[in-house]
Nucleic acid binder design. Structure first.
Lengths: 259, 259
DNA sequence: CAGTGGTCTAGACCACTCA
DNA sequence: GAGTGGTCTAGACCACTGT
């Protein structure tokens, strides 16, 4: 039999996906459990393997399920990660920090933070960074790449840029954890206290590289955030490009309208 | 011939996608142009139709291409929409407003705004709304559904909830455009001046319904935003659930860290 | 009517995992 | 080596669009 059937939008695949979604939400499958294989699903629902596969892809896009090549599909754990947009940079938050704002957030959410400094190098600023730092493109900056984990699950990547005129020769230019004082503590020592921020937010599907690094399937939505740290006089001195998986993350801002 | 070939991650589909992407970016195809059909692409690249299709799906996910059933695939226009997170609610912005914050944003970006009030009804608050408004679930609220267009392109959907105790019997409870004074003007008349806001942001793939309403393919990332409007005393009086396509939209916040 | 996207079937080979 | 996901081929019928 070649195909046919009542038809309708993706009806077969959607039905299978819905059944699986229900089974997961009802507790029939718990976090970490293995789902039936594509071939088994196809047989169960009298569908082609392609159709069963399409159904599972839907769940993957929603971040519910994670494929493991050669092993099977597994139900994901879904720790919601909350990023406190303004709060994380406030004075009291900075005071208690050990891993910086991320560490404070993690503790507030009962999770164990770990920050990995992947690299720190001196490079010329590209247009995106230069514009936000208010410097000429090509001017030297320190580029620090950090990976952030909560309970050992990769939550976000942050790439910080600081003008070399500020960070050059300091610990900020070295690829090591900055310890108790963190990035913002160090900057404060240098006379740059964060008093205003600007955050620009977009979202788009994960690239292949992000997917591999953060251990998630390609196509899952990612949140991108350009953070600019500024002094009370609104002089920018630090820019960070954050990248986090959307299905795990939420951003939370509270702020006055006029100030 | 059944299949085989060098293999590699999606190599065939990715190659076709890359070729098309280049052709679009190089100007070989311009906004509005029709791409070669799936069947033509398959023949051109000596691939199966499924594979050509997978390639195009990739471009659709990126928001580069739009399918039209029975007609073909067309290159999208990509107007970037900027949402000014805090600025849009400031006093000066409210003063010049005709279509509310959205109208001000649109004019700032050289676009023509249009707001469509889809409905206004009295309903009991669900948990999400009640929590943010600081009321008991089940308490009556006005639900206003607005659709926002810029140059006639649907940009976002906003569903506003206001306690019935505030909006009952006023123009806010009627399904009509609120005119020059807009929502926030009316609320100010009632003694509720927006002075603080909270915004919670997430992103996830578009549902089927959103996709249809906003004229986009399912699976494209969407930005979701819970906005809460509060008085100077931080009493919440209005909650709006915004939903916008991520490939068109960016959010821009600037704020003081301590206040 | 021919052409296009949307969906589905059936079956192949590859790479990976695990007993 | 059996089983699983990952990718691809080949070809079918549907619904929609245009001529």
């Amino acid at each position: 039999m070649p195909d046919q059937r009542p038809h309708g939008d993706n009806a077969e695949a959607r039905a299978i996906a819905a059944a699986l979604r229900d089974a997961i939400h009802s507790g029939e499958f718990n976090a970490g459990d293995k789902l039936p294989s594509e071939r088994v699903l196809a047989a169960t629902y009298h569908a082609a393997r392609n159709t069963a596969r399409a159904a599972i892809q839907e769940l993957i896009q929603e971040g519910l399920v994670k494929p493991e090549h050669g092993r099977g599909y597994f139900v994901r754990e879904r720790p919601r990660w909350m990023r406190f947009g303004r709060l994380r940079y406030t004075t009291p938050m900075r005071a208690v920090t050990r891993h910086g704002p991320f560490g404070a957030e993690a503790r507030a959410q009962g999770k164990t933070p770990r920050v990995e400094v992947r690299s720190a190098e001196r490079i010329p600023a590209d247009a995106d960074v230069a514009e936000r730092l208010g410097i000429e493109p090509g001017t030297d900056v320190v580029r620090r790449e950090n990976w952030y984990y909560a309970d050992e699950i990769p939550m976000q990547i942050g790439i910080t840029y600081i003008p070399w005129s500020i960070a050059g020769g300091t610990a900020l230019a070295k690829a090591e954890n900055l310890g108790p004082r963190s990035l913002y503590g160090r900057l404060e020592d240098l006379g740059y206290t964060i008093a205003n921020i600007r955050e620009e937010i977009t979202a788009r599907p994960a690239t292949r590289e992000e997917a591999e690094g953060l251990d998630l399937p390609p196509g899952v939505p990612m949140i991108h955030l350009w953070h600019t740290g500024m002094t009370a006089e609104k002089q920018p001195f630090e820019v960070t490009n954050f990248c986090m998986r959307a299905d795990y993350s939420a951003l939370d801002y509270d702020m006055p309208v006029d100030y």
